[in-house]
Amino acid sequence: MANYEREAIGHLQEAVKKANYTGWFGGNKLDEAAELYAKAANSFKLAKKWQEAGDAYISQANVMKKLNETDEAASSYLNASKCYKKTNPLDAINALQKAVEILVERGRFQSAASNQKQIAEIYENEIIDPEKTLHAYELAADWYTTEESNAQANACWLKVAHYAAQLEQYQRAIEKFEAVAEASKDNSLTRWSLRTYFLNAGICRLCTGDLVATQGAIDRYLQMDTTFSTAREYSFLKALFDACEANDTEAFTAAIIDFDKITKLDPWKTSLLLKVKNSLANDEQDFT
C-alpha cells in the first residue's frame, strides 16, 4: 500500500509541474499533465486512498477542460465520482453534477439522465434528503423523457410522486401517479401495475381531504382499467373512501387491517394513511 501511495504522490507532483509549465513560445504540457493525473489516480486507487484518487481525477478533468476536451473531462468527473462514493457522498454528487453539465451541453441526454439518477440515489440512500432527492429524480425523468426512454422516465416519475407525497405535495404526487398510469394503460408489460398507481394516487387524494375530487378520480380509474373493479386495491380504496365520507375512524382502521392481512402495507402508505386517520379523528372531535 505504501509503495502505491508513494508512487501516486510522485505522479501527482510531476503532474502539477507539467500543468503549470509554460514554454518560451507559449507552449504547454497539459497533455502530459492529464496523463500523469490519471496515473496518480490509479495508484491512489491501488492504495485504497479513495479521496485522493478522486481529487486526482478532478485535477485531470480541469486540465481536459483547458484542452477543450470536454468529453474526456466528463469521463474524468465520472471516474472521480466513483472514488468519492466510497468515502464522501457530497463530493461524489459534485463530481457527477459537473459531468452532467457537460453531458447536457453536448446533447447527451440519455447519459445525463443516467448520471442524474445516480445523484438522486445518493441523496435518497446516503444523505437522506427528500427534497433534493425529488428534484434530482425529476431532472432525470425530464431527460429520459427527452430521449423517449419511457420506462426509465416513468420509474423516475414514480420516485418523484412518492417523495412529493412524503413532503405533503399531494397534488404533485397525484399528477405523477396518474400520468404514469395513463402512459402504462396500453402497454401489456406495465398494465398490471395500474391498480397500484390508482391506489397510491387515491390515497394521496384522501390526504387532500377533497372527497368529491377523490370520487371523480376513482370513477376515472374504473374507466381506464375495467379490471380495477375486481382488484383488492379497488376494494381497499373504496372502503377507505366510504370511511372518510362517513367520518368513521373505526371503519377506516378496519379497512387497513383487513388489507394488511393479505398485502403488507409499505411504510410510505402507512404514513399517509395515518395522516388521513388523524384528520378523521380530529374531525370527529370537532363534531362532538
Rank of each mutant, 00 (worst) to 15 (best):
N3C: 01
N3K: 12
E7I: 01
I9D: 04
G10F: 05
G10Q: 13
Q13I: 12
A15K: 03
A15Q: 01
V16E: 11
K17L: 03
A19F: 07
A19P: 01
T22S: 04
W24D: 12
G26R: 02
N28R: 00
L30M: 05
Y37N: 04
K39F: 08
K39T: 07
A40D: 03
N42K: 14
N42P: 03
S43P: 00
A47V: 06
A47S: 08
K48P: 00
W50K: 02
E52N: 12
E52F: 00
Y57E: 05
I58R: 02
V63Y: 02
K65E: 10
K66W: 05
L67E: 06
N68E: 12
E69C: 07
E69V: 05
D71K: 10
D71Q: 10
D71N: 10
N79Y: 11
N79G: 07
A80H: 07
Y84V: 03
Y84E: 11
T87W: 08
T87F: 08
L90W: 15
A92Y: 03
N94A: 10
A95L: 13
V104E: 14
Q110L: 14
A112H: 07
A112I: 12
A112V: 09
A112M: 09
A113P: 03
S114K: 14
S114N: 15
S114H: 14
K117S: 10
Q118H: 03
I119F: 02
I119T: 04
E121A: 11
Y123C: 09
E126H: 13
D129S: 14
L134N: 04
H135A: 15
H135W: 11
A136N: 09
A136E: 10
A136W: 08
Y137L: 09
Y137H: 01
Y137V: 00
Y137G: 06
E138Y: 13
E138W: 08
L139G: 08
W143I: 08
W143M: 15
Y144E: 14
A151T: 14
A153N: 04
C156M: 06
C156T: 08
A165F: 02
Q166P: 00
L167R: 06
Q169G: 01
Y170S: 02
Y170K: 03
I174F: 01
E175I: 15
E175N: 14
K176D: 13
A179S: 09
V180C: 04
K185N: 05
K185W: 01
K185D: 06
S188R: 13
L189Y: 12
R191P: 00
W192T: 13
L194R: 10
R195E: 15
R195S: 12
L199K: 15
G202S: 09
L206Y: 05
C207T: 09
T208M: 00
L211A: 03
L211R: 06
G216E: 10
A217E: 12
R220A: 13
M224S: 12
D225G: 02
T226R: 08
T226N: 10
T227C: 04
T227D: 15
F228D: 10
S229E: 15
A231I: 05
R232F: 09
R232H: 11
R232K: 13
E233T: 15
Y234D: 05
L237G: 01
L240I: 07
C244M: 10
T253H: 07
A254Q: 13
D260V: 08
L265R: 04
D266N: 11
P267D: 15
T270P: 01
L273V: 08
L273P: 00
V276E: 08
V276M: 04
A281S: 12
Q285L: 11
T288W: 09
